[in-house]
Design a binder for these strands. Structure first.
Lengths: 184, 184
DNA sequence: AGGAACATGTAAATTGTTACATGATTAC
DNA sequence: GTAATCATGTAACAATTTACATGTTCCT
């Protein structure tokens, strides 16, 4: 296996909350989940087919308007059991964070390299925008306490993402200061 | 392309510092670089062959002992140019962090779920160990200021990794406190 | 002598991305 | 009407992991 097929568990986890179409599942990766995993529809549709063959999910056909058929997938008992097992077993492997900017940074030898400041400013812009987006999500999704109580894990990971992004932005600002001094 | 072949640039960047064998390159992923990118030797050897075909690197054969031949790879002018270009262009895509634990967390609905505490404790153990390792690297690799001045980017990414891991550990501790209260 | 580490490759399978393909519905 | 979005799929390609395969050198 190239990575033990975590996508199947994400699909099962989402379907465990409520029935969804392949299109709905694809869109789930636009927000919070997308912070921690990415998948395109070309990966999701075949995976749905496999999960159904295995009996972990089923689908019913819904018709929108005149003739648009969409498949609404439901999780089965086998699926919930598989999801439960995945969550319950340990998670001992810490995967490397693939950060291309950090990779480039590694190959900058001198603090006086003129590219450094440019690169840091670009990242500061990007990560500040991301942080703003995440904070916006936090207020819209978890405006009231009941939302937090009912989706505690979701709340935790969003809060984690905000904190992580805050750290990144602060680190960039601090590093920029140091670089500025080094170049002065 | 599945990801624009970043591995080639890591190899070029490492060879730009000094000539290395495929084995040496493989081992480079055990430490700092491994925090931000992973690759196995089965990916590195074919990539070296391709880079050499393209004229970005060359190799000379060294003989250790009686007959063990090893290939010491050098970067060429074409290679340094390609590396320079990669570092110089912008890095506008922020890749998702694939964190399996966070993914599992997303599917925990209630703060009273008994698995939560177990999961958080496991991660606290793992990330604390990692933080200790990174701090150790920091003192061994950057004991004196000259090391920092000569490998500033390397210093920055190690420092970034330490900070990121510190955040993670603190977040886990804070979250554990909240969970404990919720369960009390 | 034997085990850990050095050293280099290939093969098979899986995962993930981009591109190709098609059609329906909704809101303006 | 037309553009954005909804909706589902396959094909081709690229990246990544795991397994297969072999041999040497160094240290104790």
């Amino acid at each position: 296996m190239a990575q033990k097929n975590k996508l199947q568990f994400i699909i099962l986890g989402l379907l465990n909350q409520r029935p969804l179409t392949g299109y709905d599942l694809t869109k789930s990766f636009d927000n919070e989940i997308g912070e921690f995993w990415q998948a395109q529809h070309s990966q999701i549709y075949p995976q749905l087919k496999r999960l159904e063959e295995q009996g972990a999910i089923t689908h019913e056909v819904m018709v929108s308007g005149e003739k648009l058929e969409k498949k609404l997938y439901h999780i089965t008992d086998l699926g919930t059991a598989r999801l439960r097992d995945w969550i319950t077993v340990g998670t001992p492997e810490l995967t490397a964070t693939k950060d291309e900017f950090i990779l480039k940074l590694y190959f900058i030898r001198k603090s006086t390299d003129p590219r450094l400041s440019v690169m840091l400013h670009e990242q500061l812009r990007l990560h500040t925008a991301k942080l703003t987006h995440l904070k916006g999500r936090m207020t819209t999704v978890f405006g009231d306490d009941q939302q937090i109580a009912d989706n505690y894990g979701h709340y935790l990971i969003l809060q984690h993402a905000v904190g992580r992004e805050s750290y990144y932005v602060n680190w960039l600002k601090q590093t920029l200061k140091t670089v500025k001094h080094a170049q002065a």
